[in-house]
Design a binder for these strands. Structure first.
Lengths: 364, 364
DNA sequence: CTGTTAGCGCATTCAT
DNA sequence: ATGAATGCGCTAACAG
């Protein structure tokens, strides 16, 4: 293993000089010495020891990223954005996965603290459990008191810098758009009752319906993933109701729900409209393509890092809005299509020259 | 920031003792001292400095993982498997993304070397470019000569431990299964001509057709991602041919091809059968669900780490096989369905009690 | 502009 | 079983 000292010796210069040309900031080094050092380093295959640098400088170049599930496109998009941003800053990213266990999140913060990560990014919904939140805050506090910076992508409940998606507003807008298609009776596949993201989206959706003078939605809880959506949809099918439109609080659940509906022989959107939330791009591909509220996920990852890297005293909050994207999975209710009310064709025509089934603009 | 020395002082013991109880291996420490150290550490919120440990021990606990694109499920599945395995070994994972640029892969190895990663995992297709391979080998050599361990998930062309998917064989088996449905004229959306993975899969497919006495497939090259598949399918549509079955050399391309075919009004599988390769689970959800060759991606990530962690002198190779999974996107050719030849129903019935559209077993 | 030196936090001999 | 001392590779004063 080649060290700086080896390079210095081979170049016939001092340790300090070698350090200055290879890793130093100010370049007060003569041209010839510089060349000698550089050639010696190349010849010996010298690679800095970043851990030694961290120790000597008292600051590392690693960003710790904590997500819940790498397989979920929601998180892989955020992670991609964060990793690219870290790369732009010349930093490397250490990735930890909680598998949706809040306790693991705490353990990972401790691990990343041990790694001397310069910043820790926490992505994913916070929970409505004060005991958990207290333990999370405690671990973050010891990390921050050691100089660590923290940013959360999610709800602002930990006293950190936060990139906060406007879940309530996005769901509200979505409900308005769906009601605009003629729907009056809705169901919400509402996710787990403790997840703040699920709660906020459900609430926003319900508030819109209330404001429009429509009956409150039928709520069906379940897991926050594909199978949760599948199960919730199955339970919905087993109930007696007049629902014509279903809102799954995230895209994964919507995907599962779509599969379930297909198995039940329910035609989407003819028999039932279906929409999700997040805007993970895979939603273009199922048939029918799924309506959603699109969040700028990759950008949110980058924003979180930038937030954490520009230090301020008081924690800051940055909101990001979602954009309602109506696609083939939503259309007017069946009772409307035979009546005078028929705002637009529910399905795009097959057309070779058209772009891939991206988005139809939301109608207000 | 609390150091071991602080803990030692507060506990009234020596640095060495504190080190032994908190991070040491052998536990030759009295019970009372142990308790005092532990309580002091807890009280002060002590967290080890892993970078200092790395320096002192001369060995780190980070595994460096290099993938091409985190958004591609192929890589997020591998990464998930590798991260879980690293976690089991008490190691953390630093993730780098090349965006399919071989030069960036080299740079990332250097970065991870600087980070003093104990092992580096390289996932993704190698390229058929001797100049690139030489530079990659050179960088890996300096890393290994410094004590680093390397494993590759892909082709065994870098002289490293390797987890090698049987791409040729998987494509061969797929071709046999598709020919068994009655197809005689095939096209292959063959990906970039320099990607070994694309080459191997194309070759295996072609070999099977030759062995069966069928004409060679029509080859259409393009990028290795969704849009590449989309474009290739469009170009295929513009050609005059008697193709009844299309093989896209990875799932992403198959997904894009499916979208393109839909735009052209081509019914799958009635007008054209379509299959992919990789077995990323999202393929269950598009309609029709896509046939593929399923690789145990998460397990491959874990295998690579285990391989790199158990040191041997000679580089080893572990092959993994893919499993042909026929789904709704493949069926007998149109000319066969009206004739005597009709091996099975091409589409599963809509059935509420059935499982999600997983797999039909491959027919030999 | 260049060289000398003192730590950074910890593991680990080596004594005791 | 415990403590004192050395060094891991590097940066950053400080001195020339």
């Amino acid at each position: 293993m080649t060290t700086l000292e080896d390079v210095a010796k081979h170049a016939g210069v001092s340790l300090a000089t070698a350090s200055r040309v290879l890793n130093g900031s100010s370049r007060h080094v003569g041209a010839d010495m510089r060349r000698r050092v550089e050639s010696a380093a190349a010849r010996l295959g010298y690679r800095v020891d970043a851990t030694a640098q961290t120790l000597a400088r008292g600051a590392s170049n690693v960003v710790g990223l904590v997500i819940q599930d790498l397989i979920d496109p929601y998180f892989s998009l955020i992670a991609d954005g964060a990793i690219r941003a870290a790369d732009r800053h010349g930093m490397v990213t250490t990735l930890g996965t909680t598998y949706r266990d809040p306790e693991r999140e705490i353990a990972l913060v401790a691990t990343l603290h041990a790694q001397r990560a310069r910043v820790v990014l926490l992505a994913g919904s916070r929970v409505a459990d004060e005991a958990v939140l207290r333990r999370q805050r405690a671990e973050l506090d010891v990390y921050r008191s050691a100089g660590g910076r923290v940013a959360v992508i999610g709800q602002d409940v930990l006293g950190t810098d936060t990139v906060a998606p406007r879940n309530r507003e996005g769901a509200y807008d979505l409900a308005v758009a769906l009601a605009g298609l003629g729907h009056r009776r809705f169901a919400v596949l509402a996710g787990p009752p403790v997840l703040l993201t699920a709660i906020d989206r459900t609430r926003g959706f319900s508030e819109a319906l209330a404001d429009l003078g429509l009956p409150p939605p039928l709520l069906v809880h379940g897991d926050f993933d594909r199978d949760g959506g599948r199960d919730a949809a199955c339970r919905l099918m087993a109930m007696d109701h007049g629902v014509t439109c279903v809102f799954a609080v995230n895209d994964l659940m919507a995907t599962g729900a779509l599969a379930a509906l297909r198995e039940y022989g329910v035609q989407v959107p003819r028999d039932l409209s279906l929409a999700g939330f997040d805007g993970t791009s895979y939603l273009r591909d199922p048939v029918p393509s799924l309506a959603t509220v699109r969040l700028p996920l990759a950008r949110m990852g980058a924003m979180a890092l930038d937030l954490a890297l520009t230090d301020e005293d008081a924690p800051r909050r940055q909101h990001v809005s979602g954009e309602v994207v109506l696609r083939d999975s939503v259309g007017p209710p069946a009772w409307a299509s035979s009546a005078a009310y028929a705002p637009s064709a529910p399905v795009e025509p097959a057309n070779p020259s058209a772009a891939s089934p991206e988005a139809r603009p939301a109608r207000p």
